[in-house]
């Protein structure tokens, strides 16, 4: 590609641009085929089936009848006395952990982006919580929170930070919620950090060079270069993580299963309780889909924000 080509390219550019966009549609659809095939087979059917279940009185093993919004009405009237508690807890759990994961993830990514000794070891170490099979790490956390064997309390007591026996992590409603959040943040932060770290690698370095020449401080480069250019990745990660946290089941199920008395009850566990052990699969589906419209709106907004810069 010599300079000559580029010099007389200007008129061609305009002509071609129009044609290029004309031809984008077939390619665009073609590239989507593998994804749509897999999702169509393994996701669309279960998804539609789930929606259908939620408007029937189906029970496990018995195909039910259409009952309209009966299941949703059952919940919105808080008939079982637990639903609203679960909604509030779910929002609290998702909101608080997301804020912490976002903040800590950014800090972690910035740190990992620096040069320091044993960098490779440190990166691997900080990733460990995200790698370890969750069923096993949650059991370990449960044990660390167990009042009888809490090594956390042992440490706190022996460093004289608290008096014996230390906080009852999982037995008091507020503590139990905090414990759930701690474990979720512990596990989720590396996810943010790695995504942000990858995002930072895509930012052209000359921007920082230029900013430095212009006398910008580190903080100024961070707020006016890193954050804006990280925005697409940041929004996607935030969205994905919010949704995953919203539906988080395994951690809370292993750690508290909603106890003490439904004070850490989350929608995901509540849906499971009704749907699987209780056999009322229609009602369970309705509980897990009840916030679907709301989440959809959130997704739509983020999608819009993501598209906007073009």
């Amino acid at each position: 590609m010599g300079t000559a080509t580029r010099a007389d390219a200007v008129p061609v550019w305009h002509r071609r641009r129009v044609r290029i966009y004309d031809r984008e549609a077939p390619l665009g659809y073609l590239l989507l085929v593998p994804t749509l095939v897999i999702l169509g087979i393994f996701l669309l059917y279960p998804f539609l089936f789930g929606i259908w279940l939620s408007i029937t009185d189906s029970e496990l093993g018995n195909v039910g009848n259409f009952i309209g919004l009966g299941n949703y009405r059952f919940e919105f009237r808080n008939t079982d006395g637990v639903f609203y508690e679960a909604v509030v807890n779910t929002f609290l759990y998702t909101g608080v952990t997301t804020i912490f994961k976002l903040g800590l993830g950014l800090v972690m990514a910035l740190l990992l982006n620096q040069v320091f000794p044993f960098r490779r070891f440190v990166r691997a170490a900080l990733l460990l919580p995200y790698i370890i099979p969750t069923v096993l790490s949650y059991e370990a956390w449960r044990w660390m929170f167990d009042p009888t064997f809490s090594v956390i309390n042992w440490l706190l007591v022996n460093t004289h930070l608290v008096h014996y026996p230390g906080p009852n992590w999982l037995g008091v409603p507020a503590n139990a919620m905090a414990a759930l959040m701690i474990v979720n943040v512990w596990r989720g932060t590396p996810f943010y950090a790695i995504a942000f770290l990858a995002g930072m690698q895509v930012i052209p370095l000359d921007l920082y060079e230029a900013a430095r020449v212009d006398g910008a401080s580190r903080w100024q480069s961070f707020t006016s270069i890193t954050i804006p250019l990280l925005r697409p990745v940041l929004l996607v990660v935030l969205l994905l993580s919010t949704i995953l946290t919203f539906a988080d089941f395994q951690g809370p199920f292993v750690l508290t299963n909603g106890a003490p008395y439904n004070s850490t009850q989350l929608l995901s566990i509540w849906a499971y309780q009704w749907g699987i052990p209780g056999g009322a699969i229609g009602l369970g589906a309705a509980i897990s889909l009840v916030l679907f419209p709301l989440l959809t709106v959130v997704v739509a907004i983020v999608l819009f924000m993501l598209r906007r810069p073009e």
Partner: peptide
């Protein structure tokens, strides 16, 4: 079914 539900809740 009902007693099962009350038990598991």
């Amino acid at each position: 079914k009902k007693t099962a539900q009350s038990q598991t809740q």
